[in-house]
Design a protein around this nucleic acid. Structure first.
Length: 820
RNA sequence: GCCCGGGUGGUGGAAUGGCAGACACAAGGGACUUAAAAUCCCUUGGGGAGAAAUCCCCGUGCGGGUUCGACCCCCGCCCCGGGCACCA
């Protein structure tokens, strides 16, 4: 026989979900509609990719937090936009199609239906009238439309370049989608090996926005670590280009350096093996060894060239350049510690002040010349890479590094031998994929030239295919759809599709006005919902730090420049929810078998208990392990609330508790309510939901101890509980005769004076050690406290008879007697 | 190597300069019950003294410092997690 549930959540939860849907009570008012006069809040979750595996408890942690915040602000009289949708283009549905022949559309629909069911079972207060699906032509019509904006602004271009190609996925990937692992470069999705291949691809000019993407991070309330990751990814550096003229010709090599102040210490120049001048600068005597070295480098994997390469390799070209600042003749080397892809692919080597150059110079016995000394302490023989003071540097002697950099750059500019230069590591965004299940590009080719579709031809939908496999040569599946691809006039359609990130780059804007079929969004709606710096709270995983969150900021800035949006940044405040580990403290994974299935938890304990437990586990941002015992504790807490209101008859029915009372709450209960209300209110606003719940527990513990339970106090509790456990809160509210839906009730208030205790216990320390306590009224002044201490019967015992030299009194906090 | 987090009872965590361990979980004891489950009550950082009420000592990764007072602020280390990594 199954054990009886501690309270009837299985009946309560579905029935209130139905009641909310019927009352349509979470619909956000559009500007102009009734309700839009209220202040707005836009509370957003990172919308999920609807996978076949269904939701996991990690999704639900973030969604529960935003739901609590949304419900709270609604009760505080705000017009809350809290939407949900599906980021539904992507590879898994397509891979499933390759294996089974099922159209990705069908797989996607099935998965979406399952995700929606799971989300609705949690009782989240989404405005379902705004649900969006990135694979819906009514949606991606506007994704294509935004692409055309980028295209027409010159921010989309086709380039033949070495790109990351993943044979297992059958597609190219963006830099941001490739991870550096001990096994070499791997795909972010699926962890497959990836390789460099020269291919012709669509690129988006995100580099044009590098500086603004960097600067505007300062506008954002985001976790510092995440901002730092974006800063690193953008990778700004400031320095100078320096021209080194070749000995015996007017040709020159341009290098990039962040330390122009060390130019007097440059003792050689290094080119990357791929540098275009390597061949022409190699002397006949060196030709053979240089060619050999280049071939060796080319055959090395990236891994061999970077992480494992503890020892530097290289070979001289046999030619020389002139150091512009001192006219010295210095040799040119080729070495693969210099990257072709950064700066100019050439560096000036200053072994005394750069670790890598130092290592190389040591190995090949090249001269090391110190031109910087530390500001304090003396110069040492090794490598000194920090800022300091110039020595043996002509006109820079005695200058500190920042000043010396400026002076040297000025000198180079005056001589026409160099210039100030800012560099970024950020590369343009590789935007095309050789896949079927993505947005088709609204682009036509006529021979070698491309042209855009016009807006009225959108959406450009996908053709039906029977075979979704990309060809081994890298031809996309759409290349097979000849009737779709080839236009009557001979022009052909672009057969690549957009990457999964395209749809998520702007979905938060569509939520502002999701049913608009005249425009991507109405200006008024955008201004209203995005006002005050964009989305008010955005919650999601940290895995999108340099992917979605960078791409979306980029698109948003383009739209801002086109005056299509009113704010420079999309997401004002962002919080990353921490990972929920399995009960064994390991990452949840199917193969380990420690995955917690929310469907089962809801069936066993109810959605409210799952919500409460996930929030009670610990701080939202923190990684924390699942605990089935802890889950039971949450159920116990909720069932105690239930039994405050109801009791069970012999026949198993729940009837109103005989302890209920119509009387007004006593003073202590009034105080308990006030304290809980104050704490829950500040904690919700500070997103400290674990301590908010503990405040509710303290209140419930107090109410449980009462012989008579005032209904007013329980109704107050129901409102405080409503954001956290909304189903139970509604049921309790209704059973106590509360009017309307508690979800729409006003957030409870309290009188400040009710927070005060009648008597305060003030700890008394002697020489900072706790000795005793005095009881005093809370507003007692220093003078009153001091006179009470001095007259206290225990004073002698506390001080051990010693005289008091000093009394430190912090009213309301502590007394410390100093008795030497 | 560099950057960003973090280290508190048996466990999850609370306390951002003022009584360390709120609130839970687990454990132990008790009540109710034929019994079990559920529920309710009590104890619970470690060590020591006492018949007891009580009292004393130690305690927030380690070592220093600032302060009447430090989990909290400062300096130096150790360990764990995440990110970046030959970017000149």
């Amino acid at each position: 026989m199954p054990t009886r549930a501690p309270y009837p959540f299985a009946q309560i939860e579905p029935s209130w979900q139905k009641a909310w849907a019927q009352a349509d009570c979470f619909r956000a008012a559009q500007p102009g509609e009734a309700g839009s006069e209220k202040p707005k809040k836009y509370i957003l979750d990172m919308f999920p990719y609807p996978s076949g595996a269904g939701l996991h408890v990690g999704h639900l942690e973030g969604y529960t937090a935003t739901d609590i915040i949304s419900r709270y602000w609604r009760m505080r009289g705000h017009n809350v936009l809290h939407p949900m949708g599906w980021d539904a283009f992507g590879l898994p549905a397509e891979q499933h199609a390759v294996q089974t022949g099922t159209h990705p559309r069908l797989t996607t629909k099935k998965n979406i239906d399952n995700f929606r069911r799971q989300i609705q079972a949690m009782g989240f207060s989404y405005d379902w009238s705004r649900e969006i699906d990135t694979t819906d032509p009514k949606y991606f019509r506007w994704t294509q439309w935004i692409f055309l904006k980028l295209y027409n602004k010159g921010l989309a271009y086709v380039a033949e370049a070495p790109v990351w190609y993943c044979p297992a996925l059958g597609t190219v990937l963006a830099n941001e989608e490739v991870l550096t692992t001990p096994e070499g470069p791997r795909s972010e999705r699926g962890n497959h090996p990836v390789e460099r291949r020269p291919m012709r691809q669509w690129m988006l000019k995100i580099t044009a926005y590098a500086e603004r993407l960097l600067q505007d991070l300062d506008l954002l309330e985001w976790p510092e670590s995440l901002k730092e990751m974006q800063r690193n990814w953008i990778g700004k550096s400031e320095g100078a280009e320096v021209d080194f003229t070749l000995v015996g010709s007017d040709e020159k090599i341009t290098v990039y350096t962040t330390r122009p102040d060390t130019l007097f210490g440059a003792t050689y120049v290094v080119l990357a093996p791929e540098h275009p001048l390597v061949s022409s600068l190699t002397s006949p005597a060196q030709r053979e060894s240089v060619e050999k070295y280049r071939q060796e480098s080319a055959s090395k994997s990236d891994l061999e060239r970077t992480e494992l390469a503890k020892t530097k390799t290289g070979t001289p070209l046999g030619s020389f350049v002139v150091n512009p600042v001192n006219g010295e003749k210095i040799p040119i080397w080729v070495a693969d510690y210099v990257l072709a892809s950064y700066g100019t692919g050439a560096v000036m080597a200053v072994p005394a002040h750069d670790e890598r150059d130092f290592e190389f110079a040591e190995k090949f016995s090249l001269p090391i010349r110190h031109v910087i000394r530390p500001e304090s302490g003396k110069s040492e023989a090794g490598c000194f890479a920090d800022d300091g003071i110039n020595v043996d540097s002509g006109f820079l002697d005695g200058l500190k590094t920042p000043e010396a950099k400026i002076r040297m750059t000025e000198w180079l500019e005056k001589k026409g031998q160099g210039r100030h230069q800012v560099r970024y590591k950020l590369r343009d965004w590789l935007f095309s994929r050789q896949r079927y299940w993505g947005e088709p590009f609204p682009i036509l080719w006529r021979g070698e030239t491309h042209e855009p579709l016009s807006d009225c031809d959108l959406p450009l939908t996908l053709p039906e295919l029977s075979d979704y496999q990309p060809s081994p040569s890298g031809e996309p599946p759409l290349a097979k759809a000849n009737s779709w691809r080839i236009m009557p006039d001979g022009r052909t359609r672009e057969t690549n599709t957009m990457p999964q990130w395209a749809g998520s780059c702007w979905y938060y804007l569509r939520f502002c006005d999701p049913r608009n079929d005249q425009a991507s969004w109405g200006a008024q709606a955008e201004k209203y919902w995005m006002g005050g710096g964009g989305v008010d709270l955005y919650v999601g995983g940290a895995e999108h730090a340099v992917l979605h969150l960078l791409y979306a900021r980029f698109w948003h800035k383009v739209l801002f420049d086109l005056q299509l949006v009113s704010q420079p940044e999309p997401f004002r405040r962002l919080v990353n929810q921490g990972i929920i580990l399995g009960e064994d403290n390991r990452k949840m994974s199917k193969s380990v078998g420690n995955v917690v299935n929310p469907d089962e938890v809801i069936a066993e304990h109810g959605a409210d208990a799952l919500r409460v437990f996930e929030m009670f586990m610990g701080p939202l941002e923190q990684m924390k392990p699942w605990s089935s015992k802890g889950m039971e504790g949450a159920v116990r807490f909720l069932s105690r609330i239930w039994r405050l209101v109801c009791e069970e008859t012999d026949t198993g029915e729940w009837v109103p508790s005989t302890h209920l009372s119509e009387d007004a709450p006593d003073k202590e209960t009034t105080r308990a309510l006030a304290k809980a209300t104050a704490k829950v209110t500040t904690d919700i606003e500070g997103l400290q939901l674990n301590t908010a719940i503990s405040a509710l527990m303290i209140l419930v513990n107090h109410l449980t101890s009462l012989p008579k339970r005032p209904k007013g106090a329980l109704l107050h509790l129901a409102r405080l509980l409503s954001p956290f456990a909304p189903h139970l809160a509604e049921e309790v509210h209704q059973r106590l005769g509360g009017k309307g839906l508690v979800s729409l009730a006003e957030w409870p208030s309290y009188r400040a004076e009710d927070l005060q205790d009648d008597i305060l216990e003030l700890p008394v320390q002697v020489n900072s050690r706790l000795k005793g306590k005095i009881q005093i009224h809370p507003q007692a002044t220093r003078e009153e406290i001091e006179s009470m201490i001095r007259g206290h019967s225990d004073l002698e015992a506390w001080t051990g008879g010693k005289s008091i030299q000093k009394i430190i009194i912090v009213p309301g906090r502590i007394v410390n007697l100093i008795c030497p």
